[in-house]
Design a binder for these strands. Structure first.
Lengths: 195, 195, 195, 195
DNA sequence: TCGTAAACGAGACGGTACGTCCTGTCTTAAC
DNA sequence: GTTAAGACAGGACGTACCGTCTCGTTTACGA
């Protein structure tokens, strides 16, 4: 039994650290985020941070997962187009209307070159998104809306890639983007009669 | 007349710095790239670096522009599909077979959150790519291969977004990806008879 | 109450710094003394030095005060000549047989032009020496050994000035010097009738 | 024949360097004197300085010798006391009323620990002073004013040591100091019977 | 109710890198 | 061949953070 001895860890400190880190990450970006400053803003000793997270990366990753966790599965809406638009729209909304946008922007830089952040992120968020696209597309195929040979992986990237492209390189992340992407994707994968 | 006074700047030192920086950027990534180490590997004083580049970011940006500059315009091949595949293929090839791939991966992190790198990159490389896609598509529309209402911006992002997505989040950057993306894009934008 | 918070400063580091600084000061002199090297030899981070001393000067001053503090008052020996010789002899001995000599030589340069070192040194060491000479001379006047109008300030400088002169410009600092100075001070050079 | 070829060295540059160096030496002291700043203030390239002086020390030494050269021998005044007072007074006057004072103060620090400055200074200025004292004292002995066994070396240091002591550690360098020193040297402090 | 054990805020620790400054040398065009 | 200008390699400066390590104190649990 891992009986807990000694003083329990403080939830207040834990939350203060996350809040301070989120604020600073948004303010200055990942590279200029300093744990020294997080500790100061949170009113916490540095050791209290290191006791919970082994590195800046893992703290940042927790911030990201915290913001991506309220992920909601797409229900069967009867229409493949509606479901895809809902899916893409929820991604755009999360990026534009919650702190996820700035946090994501700050961490984009780390996904490619920093396995400590990239790997867990891929294993959870990216994977979950691919699976959701797969579920929606499977329903679409079953309905006869989509060609049975539609490639789920390419489809995910065609829907999500442009969004991250704009997040990275600039460009509107307006709600109009979702239907535009879905329209193009569907026109491609839809059986001939669809159009 | 900007008469040159004093000892001219050394081209040898300039190139040694760029070489050392490129190597180290690929080896350790942008965050762990230290100008101290660049100077040491280049056999150069730190001041010689700071005389040319005000920051690590601007040095890295120069590396990136140096690698993206050998950009070749797509000639008229008679076939819109061939031209698009050539375009996408050349991007994939540059990312997989030249130092551009690792350098890009190392700098992806900075585009979103670091205007000092992101803005110039957007203004040159991203802009050039959009314009090339626009030229190819304009020829396609003229040929009757493409629907006249095809949106160039969305098209660029559908072609390039998935590539950067895989660069960032992992996934094959095989030569097969190009034709897959073009096929999907064309199926969407092509006039009905195309398929 | 000045409650102590945080980890206390390390006495070991403090002493290691002083030792390394003393050695290097003697080896290379004040101008060529580098805090970087002190830190390296002491096995200490540079910040640990700067936390204690704001500058090279103040560190050097502490070295000097550390070496001049074991100052011993001259007891009543019954003979003014003996007391003066003891006083001058102890100064010469300290300069020739302890690290004070080399340290003093290294810092002589700073007394005149560097108030940060000169002022505290004057306020403590020079002042203490003047007072000791004054006490000895007062006893001498009381004994009837010395003329009552003898000027203490001039006397101090006549005894100590030549010693520092030789320290600075070269010349024996042999034990013989003390009695010579005292003899001349007491007797004067004029033939008897002059006065 | 050392025929001069090429452009002759500029006397104007030479003098501008000495002037700038003297000013800066007085303003900031020897340690904080930077050849970079001397060159800038003199409107001269750094190489022009290094072509003439191998080091900061030798430049400073030249400044010092330039100021100590107008040394005037003491004529036979008929009175040993007058001659000694003239000698000591001329030293005090030079130190208080010409730039020699500040320059000396700035360089005092280097005499002991820096042979490059100390040795030539000792060999010229200090030596000349000792010889002058010797001449005056020899005349005094010949006149019967001074005891024949008077030690010239000790005498020089008793006259000059206190002056440098005050220059270094503070204290009036008033014209009154000269007669006080000469008086004490001649008379001694002991009550008459002592001898 | 009293240890005992772990977490707490604080801040010092040995380090690494920063960006600046200065050194003494070298390289140019102008004279 | 010297000049002013200024770039060069090198190296120290004083500062900022890193991740670790004491401190004295606080908080909970089990004896």
């Amino acid at each position: 039994m891992p009986i807990r001895r000694g003083r329990p860890r403080s939830d207040a400190a834990h939350q203060a650290i996350l809040d301070a880190a989120r604020e600073l990450l948004i303010e200055v970006g990942f590279t200029r985020l300093k744990l020294e400053h997080v500790a100061a803003r949170a009113g916490v000793g540095k050791a209290t941070i290191y006791r919970r997270w082994p590195s800046k990366e893992s703290l940042a990753l927790d911030l990201l997962l915290e913001l991506t966790s309220p992920y909601i599965a797409i229900p069967d809406l009867g229409s493949t187009r509606d479901e895809l638009e809902t899916l893409v729209g929820s991604i755009i909304r999360a990026l534009t209307m919650t702190p996820l946008g700035p946090v994501m922007r700050a961490l984009l830089s780390q996904f490619a070159g920093n396995p400590a952040i990239g790997d867990p992120f891929r294993a959870t968020v990216v994977r979950a998104r691919r699976e959701e696209v797969a579920r929606v597309m499977a329903r679409g195929v079953a309905r006869g809306d989509l060609r049975p040979d539609a490639d789920v992986e390419i489809a995910t990237e065609l829907l999500v890639g442009p969004i991250y492209f704009r997040l990275m390189f600039g460009g509107d992340l307006s709600p109009r983007l979702g239907p535009q992407l879905v329209e193009t994707l569907l026109a491609g994968y839809a059986v001939a009669v669809e159009r």
